[in-house]
Amino acid sequence: MSEDSTAFLVIYIITFLISFPNTVLAFCSCIRKIHRKPIPIDIFMLNLTVSDLIYLTFLPVKTKEAADNMVWNMPYILCHFNMFMFFLPFCSSSLFLGAISAERYVCVRFPIKYKSQRRNIYTILICVAIWVLVTVLIVFAYKATYTNSEIHNTTNQRPLVTEPQRCYSNFTSTQLRELLKIRLAALVLLSCTFIICCFCYINVICILWKLPLINRWRRLRAIGLALGTLLVLTVCYAPISASYIVGFIRQKNPDWFMKALIPTTLNPCFNLVIFYCISKEMRKAIGVCANALFQLYACLKRFMLLCT
């Protein structure tokens, strides 16, 4: 097994074990809060958890691919869903993080206008627009890599000769040229999201810091939310963004493209920081789970002492 395959396999397993139960918990918390009293931040958080759950649901398939040294030994129809199920959350998650930062800024900067009765309608329209935008982007990428081929290629159908099957690789010159343009568009979206997040959270922290009646815990949560969001965008998206820039300039995938993909798999793990800072119910649930784990550890420790 190659080093890249081993790295993907380990990170896939860690990401799934840590993120899946916590993301399901966050999803249930958002559903409960929206059912009780919907507000914009909960609607955005629900969409972010849905984005992560799409990724995590398909992650076992990617884990199997990594365990097979990136050879596709599964039904080949799954390969066609690979781009949608793996890259759609990659784009949508970043955009929802940008929307959450903008929502936090509006909430703090314009508290009176924020209480408008139409705010939930605007929020839903923004969420729909994000999903439509990301879906269109992925559809164009799919069209470029699976239907626009000059020669036989392992990304669109099985070869006539016996060779290892791979998914989303070995692009023709035409496919790669079209795909690089779409990646550049995705890079523009990521860059705009990063700028929006920086602007919004810097202003939120400055405003809260000047308000004398805001307690220290709320200020720390605002700082944690800002740092968590910037951490996601920097650690998860900076390497792949750099590969997009280099690839577009050179008109080919850089040799380290697969390594740049590795940090993106940690995206749901870092999003847990966002859930923790925003959701009070999430913090309580994590506290209960952590307390249960400590009690279980203490019981096991006492049991081991009795056995010895």
Rank of each mutant, 00 (worst) to 15 (best):
M1T: 10
S2C: 01
A7I: 13
L9Q: 13
V10R: 12
I13F: 08
I14V: 15
T15G: 05
S19V: 05
N22W: 11
T23I: 05
L25S: 13
I34P: 06
I34R: 02
H35P: 00
H35R: 15
R36C: 09
R36D: 12
R36E: 14
R36P: 00
M45V: 00
N47A: 07
S51R: 00
T57G: 08
P60K: 05
V61L: 12
V61F: 12
K62T: 07
K64M: 11
K64R: 09
D68K: 03
P75E: 04
F87R: 07
F96D: 03
G98S: 15
S101H: 07
V106S: 08
C107I: 01
K113N: 10
Y114I: 04
T123E: 02
T123I: 03
T123C: 08
A129K: 02
A129F: 07
I130R: 00
L133A: 13
V136Y: 09
L137N: 11
I138L: 03
V139E: 06
F140H: 10
A144E: 11
T145M: 06
Y146Q: 08
N148G: 02
T154H: 12
C167I: 11
S169M: 09
S169A: 12
T172N: 10
Q175W: 03
E178Q: 13
K181A: 08
L189C: 10
C192P: 01
C198V: 15
C200R: 08
Y201V: 06
I202F: 11
I202G: 01
L208R: 08
L208E: 12
W209M: 05
L211G: 00
L211N: 13
L213C: 12
I214C: 02
L220H: 05
A222E: 04
I223Y: 03
G228R: 05
L231Y: 08
Y237L: 07
S243F: 06
V246S: 03
K252V: 03
N253T: 06
M258F: 04
I274T: 14
F275W: 05
F275S: 00
Y276G: 06
R283H: 05
R283E: 11
R283F: 02
A298K: 08
C299M: 13
T308Q: 09
T308P: 02
